[in-house]
Amino acid sequence: MVEQEPPKKVASDGSELGSMARHMRAAEPYVSAVWKLVGGAVVGVLGGYWLDKKLGTAPWLLLGLSLLGICVGFYGFLREMARLGKRK
């Protein structure tokens, strides 16, 4: 992985990019990590709510899926942050 670094520099040199594009690209992994944290909870809650309504199992699926969603979101977030930290 380390020896793959130089070609990356050559391929996406980025000198022609505008400052906005550069900043957005730099921020993108962090945004995506935060979105994992939030989105996990959102998907869990909404998915649970919808399934509860569909299957008439309120409120168990909502509770279960919310908890699962929050955990998965947190796990995904930590994983992403660990990866970002390692890359730095």
Binding site: S32, W35, K36, G39, G40, V42, V43, G44, G47, L68, G69, V72, G73, Y75, G76, R79, E80, R83
Partner: peptide, 22 residues
């Protein structure tokens, strides 16, 4: 798939898709 274990895809894939749609 967000780089997580496949058992968690059921949550992670919708999250990533939502992220794309946002």
């Amino acid at each position: 798939t967000g780089g997580v274990h496949w058992t968690l895809w059921i949550i992670m894939v919708p999250v990533e898709i939502l992220g794309l749609i946002s």
